[in-house]
Amino acid sequence: MILRMDLHGFDTALEDLTDILHACVQAGASIGFIHPFTPDQAQAYWQNQVRPGVQTGALDLLVAQDAGRVLGTVQLIPAAMPNQPHRADVAKLLVHPDARRQGLGRALMASLEDRAAAIGRTLLVLDTRSTDPSRLLYQNMGFQIAGEIPRYCRNPFEDRLEPTTYMFKDLS
């Protein structure tokens, strides 16, 4: 089941969200963090970066839940500038490594698109490390490549820089 988190739901799911982020980084996800990466750092990200957005409505946090446990998440961040009322960013699509290959990423993205349409957003934008498997998921869901920036992000395990791919999808 895909749910949109309110503040109470966020606080209840914090332990699962922390576990997902930590497990994904440990598995090699390039989502802004590098090794070493601790569960305390994962929890601090959720508390300091995401919770305020959930509280103010600056972002929508969607989660995939099964038997009361959160197994995946994605964020929809509507653009705040007056000349971009039609645009939103997609951020931090995460599925716990133990729950992958079950369609949760696809279900989260489909729900995110539905939510974006419901709030009048017709253009979605995201970036992903060019070598990540998520790039194929996004392409299979209709995202188009806008371009690639070389040496954009650091590899989570090694001291080397990798390219990122910017993608978009027109929902109109």
Rank of each mutant, 00 (worst) to 15 (best):
E15W: 07
W46Q: 03
P39I: 07
R87G: 08
M167K: 00
S111K: 09
V50M: 03
Q47C: 05
T56M: 10
L61F: 09
A116F: 04
L59T: 05
L71H: 10
Q65E: 14
L136V: 05
L123C: 08
Q43R: 14
R101A: 15
A44Q: 08
L108I: 04
L137T: 01
R129V: 11
L126S: 05
A118W: 06
A91C: 05
L71R: 10
C153W: 09
L59A: 12
L126D: 01
P156K: 08
V125E: 12
A80F: 09
L59R: 11
D89R: 14
D40S: 09
W46N: 02
R160G: 03
P52T: 04
A79Y: 13
G53M: 07
D66A: 11
D19I: 01
V74M: 01
S130H: 11
Q49W: 01
Q84H: 10
T38Y: 06
M109C: 06
M141Q: 14
L94I: 07
Y138D: 00
A116T: 08
L61W: 13
L3I: 04
A23C: 09
A29M: 10
D170P: 02
P36G: 04
A67E: 11
L108C: 02
V90L: 14
T18Q: 02
L71F: 04
E15Q: 13
S30F: 03
L14R: 09
F157A: 15
R121Y: 04
M167P: 00
L21I: 01
V95N: 03
A27P: 07
S130W: 00
K169H: 04
T12D: 15
L14M: 08
M1L: 01
P163N: 03
D114N: 14
G105H: 02
A29Y: 08
L124Q: 02
H22P: 03
R69V: 12
Y45V: 02
T73R: 11
L126W: 00
Q55C: 07
A88R: 02
G105S: 03
D159C: 05
A27I: 07
R4Y: 08
D66V: 14
Q47T: 10
L71K: 06
A64T: 04
T164R: 09
N140H: 09
A58R: 13
E113F: 04
E162N: 11
L124F: 03
D114H: 14
L171M: 10
R121M: 04
I145G: 00
D16T: 06
L123T: 11
G105D: 02
F168E: 00
R106K: 14
P97R: 09
P36K: 06
A67N: 12
N48A: 07
P39L: 05
V125K: 00
I34E: 10
T12L: 15
T164Y: 06
G105R: 02
T131V: 12
L104K: 05
G68F: 07
L17K: 05
T12I: 15
S130A: 13
A23P: 05
T12F: 11
T56G: 14
E158Q: 15
P150K: 11
A23R: 10
